[in-house]
């Protein structure tokens, strides 16, 4: 009877408990790390019908974002440009590039180029570009350094907690509205000066980003 199990078995329940504890903490760590928009969305860079390059057009050529996203200051929706916007230049530059064939086809037929949407707020969220841009929230806070991206990727999580991080402390982010499309701009005086100037903007323009549910879920 007494010889049925070896002595080491006495430690087994403890070892099993430790093992289960370890497994559970790894799973929990995995879920916090992976099951969030910081993982699931950030880095999404779909293959576009035309390999449009922001680093060339907005960075190197120095075009303003509003040349193409011309409604961003005026409406809630920031438009992806029409084919005519591209043809302004591409009727004379790279006129027979095969990469631009979908644009020429769209310009001739009037059917849109099927761009793949990257940033998407869920349909139950109300989001408005012009409010943010007019108040001096730069594109870079929500889209990252687009002017250095050859292919646009999702740079920020766009989750509710992330929106609120700024809505609670807008002074950390707001700048002179003239500088919103200058994605390389940082306050020359560093963080402290940014917060000081931000506080002034928040006070002068009475900036009150909504933190109540009905502000964004209307």
């Amino acid at each position: 009877m007494s010889k049925l199990f070896p002595k080491s078995v006495n430690k087994l329940p403890l070892q099993i408990l430790i093992f289960i504890g370890l497994t559970a903490s790894i799973v929990a760590a995995g879920i916090t790390y992976y099951a969030t928009p910081k993982y699931s969305r950030v880095g999404y860079a779909p293959v576009q019908p035309v390999p449009f390059n922001h680093a060339l057009h907005a960075g190197h050529l120095g075009m303003d974002c509003r040349y193409c996203h011309s409604n961003v200051e005026k409406s809630g929706h920031s438009n992806v440009p029409t084919a005519q916007t591209c043809m302004n230049c591409h009727n004379q530059i790279k006129t027979d590039s095969p990469l631009l064939a979908p644009v020429r086809e769209s310009y001739a037929s009037g059917n849109p180029v099927p761009w793949v949407k990257i940033h998407k707020a869920p349909d139950y969220v109300y989001f408005n570009h012009s409010v943010h841009v007019a108040r001096g929230v730069s594109c870079v806070e929500c889209h990252g350094k687009i002017n250095e991206m050859e292919v646009v990727h999702h740079a920020k999580p766009l989750s509710m907690g992330w929106c609120l991080e700024c809505h609670r402390e807008p002074e950390k982010f707001v700048r002179d509205p003239k500088l919103v499309t200058n994605l390389d701009w940082k306050h020359p005086g560093g963080t402290a000066a940014q917060i000081e100037e931000g506080k002034k903007f928040v006070h002068d323009w009475n900036i009150q980003p909504p933190q109540s549910c009905s502000g964004c879920h209307r």
Binding site: P37, Y39, G43, Y44
Partner: peptide, 12 residues
Amino acid sequence: LGFRGSTTTRPP
């Protein structure tokens, strides 16, 4: 699964 922030063409 890779790491956070790595670029991918798969939709979220």
